[in-house]
Amino acid sequence: MTVTSLPAKAPAAGAPAGPTRPRRRRRLGYERRRAAWLMLTPALIHLTWWIGIPVLATFVLAFTHYDVLAGTITWAGLDNFTEIFADETWNTSILHTVVYTFFTVPVAMALAVVIAVLLNAKMRARAWYRAAFFLPHITATVAIALVWMWMFEPNIGLFNAVLAMFGVNGPAWLSDPAFAMAAVIVVSVWKGVGLKMLIYLAALQSIPPETYEAADLDGASGPRRFWSITLPLLKPATFFVFVVSMIDAFQVFDQVYVLTPDGGPANATTVMTFEIYRTAFSEFRISTACAQSLVLFAFLLVLTVISRRLTGKDDDAR
């Protein structure tokens, strides 16, 4: 990130230091700073109120017993954490989150990079293709998850009807513990490809065309160019997409909530966010939910730090 410092107080070079000059400059500086603080204050109040304090509160509440009905609060040490890790459902939800991320992120990324490379060529209808791939990203997850739910309908849904044409007897996707997570992953890949493609496309456009000239002279084939030139040059973008997608995937909620209510068949699709939601807002065990949130936060932090390490200095450029 570039932090450009402004030419703050332009030194009056060569100007004779008249008696009125310094005072006027000081007044101007004061007025500007006053205006700046006035403009900044509403935002600072809002961010402190709705982000700063809540984050601190999450950390504090996770180490206390807070009874929301009685309004009492007592120190708990690590009790909440021992409690959640003794909870089978919570541990399963961690596993599901990891499985979900493990399948969603690489698949969507691979598809995204291929589509981006194909779309990077000059061609007719390019903007239309791009719009089509990006459309799922900007539409509401809830509404579109309902459409997928309808397509996954086991008896009269589109999905199984298409499978039947190939002689495959489709399962009861969303109510079968063996397939529910797979269905959620399919929806997420479909929804997630667009944004990743867009970031890749932006990165591809910054690769100068001359880069490919030597390869053209050597007569390198398309796939060869992709593996030997494009992909290595996309490394910074890849790491960036990877981090963002992981963070997103770990926080998946909407499609899980809609497609497989109540954690899915036999809790087959319950993820960390869903457990936090359930603990906090249907059981009202606030402190426990905060402890769970911190575990999720720790996962995200570790993932971010690891990928920063892997990218090294590359990431500082963004």
Binding site: I53, V68, I247, Q251, A280, F281, I286, L296, F297
Partner: peptide, 26 residues
């Protein structure tokens, strides 16, 4: 100024679930 800017950058990276329970309580 740069301190405030850094703080705002930090708030950008806070995941939803690290703040939502206290937000509800507030």
């Amino acid at each position: 100024r740069s301190l405030i800017f850094m703080a705002i950058l930090a708030t950008m990276m806070i995941p939803t679930y690290t703040k939502i329970v206290p937000q509800y309580l507030i």
